[in-house]
Design a protein around this nucleic acid. Structure first.
Lengths: 235, 235
DNA sequence: AAAGGTATTAAGTACGTACATATTTTGTCA
DNA sequence: TGACAAAATATGTACGTACTTAATACCTTT
């Protein structure tokens, strides 16, 4: 007589999430089968499936065929990182974007780059060094290698005008990306490029992308002092 | 006569993804409606919906009711970060885990902590400093504040034996987490705790969690020299 | 021409059924 | 007892229908 409403998958997710939060199910515990939950909540199994999928994506539970669903035994803090094109990042912060090409040349890739691409054979790639600026001040110093077999069109791009970062992100969608985040002490070259003192702690983002098995690019972005990478994740 | 097979949502996703990769649809372009794609591929609209949802989650497309689906005008590199419990992280790398409580005391939170929690009023919280070790060597130095209203049970935890990190992750699921990643130059206290030289570049992970609107904990993890945070993301 | 209300549209959700697939469990045979 | 095959089981996927919701487009009124 009150509310003949139907449960949405979000309601179901909240229901299950709460039963975990409340301690009813702890790490490693097995949850009832989807069908039984659907039964208990009086909704379709597909609705429970949708809710479970979401909880699995967020890293809270693990699901296995026949094995059932259980609360992750070793919980992780899962967060999603969005790294925009550098020009847009600067502009969204209200800065005036600037860009300088330092140098570009075809070279044989060094060992570390081979490792990043998981390549066994050495080969030549386009090596590009450039500087992104915000309000005229150094923002990110980037050292990039681009696979010419995968992106031959890059030869006809004027890298003095458009950054490789922007061209690649707009024109070369990838199927796999590896990120490595770390800190480094500014060496003389970095200090010079970023206009800071040698030894300053700098935040470094290394990113390697592939399209299927073919390497696209790998880039080491050395950020100016004070740079932060921020995430906000809501369940 | 050949293959009367049905398309899976992954097939559909690949189909749409490829049509974007090939340049048929560029940033900002509008894709056909789900129903038309379903029609063209001879599958159910729900299958297209599932594929589209996945592409939207991965940041490639944007969907709006009535507005339709379009390729993201400002593409981002999206990656998922998993941060395990520190003990597990060490053990999975094959190290022997160690842990030391440095100090724990109830204190009024300083301004930066209030800011992290988005609190307007000052209040008291449990302040815990501790050190995680790998094979006897300093691994992560953590400086943590725990909200006692949200987690009163923490008072009865022996923080000399079990780390707050482990207890909280196992016992206090959150509904929101903010991460801030950065680099810092070791000050004397950090250098002492991590057994390194003053000025060394260190990678810092700051994490704040809430359950609904209630603050749980905020932690500043200062990692030992050479620490890297790694991601691997497959489309 | 500006403002505001209404109709239309395309994605989002819910349901129930049927079948697929990956595991685990069980059963059989050597 | 051990190896291997067969049955059982819980999640995963596909389909089609009906309905909901948010946003845009259009049309009326001032």
């Amino acid at each position: 007589m009150t509310a003949p409403e139907r449960l949405s998958w979000r309601d179901v997710r909240t229901e299950i999430h709460d039963s975990i939060l409340s301690g009813q199910y702890g790490p490693g515990d097995r949850l009832p089968r989807d069908a039984d939950i659907a039964d208990a909540l009086k909704c379709a199994r597909s609705t429970v499936q949708r809710a479970m999928q979401d909880l699995a994506d967020s890293g809270l539970i693990e699901r296995r065929r026949k094995g059932g669903t259980r609360v992750r035994a070793h919980p992780v803090t899962r967060a999603t990182l969005d790294i925009p094109i550098t020009r847009r990042e600067v502009e969204q912060k209200g800065g005036r974007y600037g860009y300088q090409l330092i140098r570009a040349a075809e070279e044989t890739i060094p060992r570390v780059i081979r490792a990043a691409f998981e390549l066994s054979e050495p080969r030549k790639m386009l090596h590009v060094e450039s500087l992104h600026l915000s309000d005229g001040r150094p923002y990110i110093l980037e050292d990039r290698w681009i696979c010419l077999e995968t992106s031959p069109e890059i030869r006809s791009v004027d890298l003095g005008r458009q950054s490789a970062n922007e061209w690649l992100v707009l024109n070369k969608p990838y199927t796999r990306v590896d990120l490595r985040l770390s800190a480094v002490s500014a060496d003389p070259a970095m200090a010079d490029g970023l206009d800071t003192a040698v030894g300053t702690a700098l935040f470094v983002i290394e990113r390697t992308t592939w399209i299927d098995a073919a390497p696209i690019t790998t880039v080491r972005s050395i950020t100016a002092p004070g740079y932060q990478l921020i995430t906000r994740n809501e369940a």
